[in-house]
Amino acid sequence: MTAESQIVIPARDRSSRRENWGRAFYRFRQSWLSVVGLAIVLALIVLAVAAPYIVPHPEHALGVTNTAARFQPPSAAAWFGTNELGQDIFSLVLIGSQVSLFSGLAVVVIAIVVGTTIGAIAGYFGGWIDEVLMRITDLLLTIPSLILAMAVAAALGTGVFNMIVAIAITWWPAYARLVRGEVIGKKEEQFVVAAHALGAGWVRILSRHILPNIVSPIVVKASLDMGFAILTVASLGFVGIGVKPPTPEWGTLLSGARSYMPDYWWTAVAPGMAIFLAVFAFNLLGDGLRDVLDPKARR
């Protein structure tokens, strides 16, 4: 009888996990907008990775110019037209997607790591540790994130790495607040009390028992933040304190095109639509993940 029970229990557990995944996938695909958002995000990532190999003029991303072909309108030879230097805008936008997308991803990842660490420690220990860490967090939250990112980026200097660090500094407080609240709620649960009674240290309790149970809200927030991170990266590039030419980036491409509007409208439409599409897609994906992972939305 005991042997049969040992065989049946794992099968039931696997069946339950498959059922949960099936329900989650069903809820996600019920919203066709979320599916569209996922498809666009995957397409953008694939294009960003493959961009150097599929664009017709990869040398334009290195600063090579062709003034004889400047300001050519969209055509079969140049799908998005050419800019004031005769560079193919289609090539610049696709290669620039690497900087925009992966910089946004790096910002969110750094913010999650720093914010989760600070929020988990503050929520678990409480007391003066919580007070000190949360007052620092509140101080950063009182300053508009874009203004603070611009100030930090101007102090650090231009470049992709400095831009990522500047934005991440302004991004982690929101994750710290989120994780702190979740940890405060979870640390009083019976499974945490039992782990503490068995002699588990605080690092093990946080990493093995509490944090795995609060992943859902972090994932949802990260998916929604990706679009805003990309927009912030483009904003710093637009005002001239982000990525510098000749490195293509959607914000810098849009900034260079504003001087030629509206006569040469295509120079601004392509990078502007790329920013819009990325932000729109990640917002749709975030809404879908929230419906799947938010326990309050489950029926």
Rank of each mutant, 00 (worst) to 15 (best):
W21M: 14
R29K: 15
T2V: 11
F276T: 08
W79A: 13
K221C: 03
L47N: 02
N20W: 14
P52S: 10
G37L: 08
R208A: 12
G237L: 12
L206G: 01
L148V: 03
T158W: 10
M261H: 08
A50T: 03
L44C: 03
E84M: 12
V108D: 05
V183M: 01
P271A: 15
M226G: 03
F80H: 12
P144Y: 00
G86Q: 07
S15K: 14
A11E: 15
A111Q: 01
G181P: 06
G126N: 02
A166R: 06
G96P: 06
S34F: 11
V8S: 15
M261W: 15
Y264P: 02
I7F: 06
R14K: 15
R298M: 10
W79R: 10
T252L: 13
M226P: 02
I40G: 04
K221I: 10
A281R: 00
V233T: 06
T142G: 12
A111S: 13
L101V: 10
A149H: 05
D294F: 10
G86C: 09
V215P: 01
I210D: 03
L156H: 11
F28Q: 09
L101G: 07
A3E: 15
I95G: 12
K186H: 10
R17V: 14
L101F: 08
T158S: 12
R208Y: 06
I45K: 02
V108G: 08
F238H: 04
V243Q: 02
T158A: 09
G37Y: 00
D13K: 11
V93K: 09
L156V: 08
G251Q: 08
G288P: 06
V46T: 11
E19N: 12
P73V: 09
D263Q: 13
I136V: 13
V114P: 07
V215K: 08
Y53L: 15
L33G: 05
P58I: 07
I184M: 11
L105T: 09
V183E: 04
F80N: 07
L146W: 12
L224Q: 05
A43T: 15
G127R: 14
Y175A: 04
V114Q: 01
L141Y: 04
V108P: 01
A48E: 10
V64P: 01
S100G: 09
A3N: 14
A11T: 08
E84R: 10
E249I: 12
F71E: 04
R258M: 15
R290E: 08
I54R: 13
I205D: 04
V55N: 00
A270M: 11
G126F: 06
G159C: 12
L146Q: 01
A257I: 01
A274H: 02
F71A: 09
G272W: 05
G81Q: 04
A278W: 02
G159W: 01
T232R: 03
L101H: 02
S223K: 00
A153M: 08
L206H: 00
Q6H: 14
V108H: 00
S255K: 03
S75F: 03
A111N: 02
P245R: 00
M1E: 10
S16H: 15
L33A: 14
D88C: 09
H60Q: 04
S15A: 14
M261A: 04
